[in-house]
């Protein structure tokens, strides 16, 4: 098998490729932040009676909260801020498909490239 000679990349091409990667990194990391995609579903379940007892805190817990500088009123929003785990099936299925498709593509395309590497490395001597 003949040896593959890669084309030489120009300076401008190199700079352009760096720019592509940097922009891609920023879009991937920054865009979800901007669109508010990040963050879990947490919401406050309000209680009327704001006492340690109603918040489900025993005497020991209450004393620690107070040591940390909280009152039942200020701790209310922390204690009652709860996750609501709901399995959203369509999103789960989309996620599974995207992940599986990604890994399948990765391994198949890698294998194609890998065979070329092995051929050149071991048959080209």
């Amino acid at each position: 098998m003949s040896r593959y000679i890669p084309p030489e990349q120009s300076k401008a091409g190199q700079i352009f490729d760096i720019a592509v990667v940097v922009v891609a990194i920023f879009v991937a990391l920054w865009l979800p932040l901007k669109l508010g995609l990040a963050g879990a579903a947490k919401s406050i379940d309000p209680l009327d009676a704001k006492t340690w007892d109603a918040l489900g805190q025993n005497a020991t817990m209450a004393s620690i909260w107070e040591k940390l500088g909280y009152t039942p009123e200020t701790a209310h929003d922390i204690i009652q801020n709860r996750f609501h785990y709901i399995i959203d099936w369509p999103t789960l299925i989309i996620m599974a498909i995207v992940l599986v498709a990604y890994f399948v593509f990765l391994f198949r395309a890698s294998d194609r490239e890998y065979r070329e590497v092995i051929n050149e490395k071991f048959d080209d001597k």
Binding site: P32, L37, D88, M95, V98, L99, Y102, L106, A109
Partner: peptide, 20 residues
Amino acid sequence: IFLGFGSQLIAMTVFYFLIS
């Protein structure tokens, strides 16, 4: 991760897919 950051995970995987 899906329970907390599902859309984030999809977005990231799509990015890796495109850059691949």
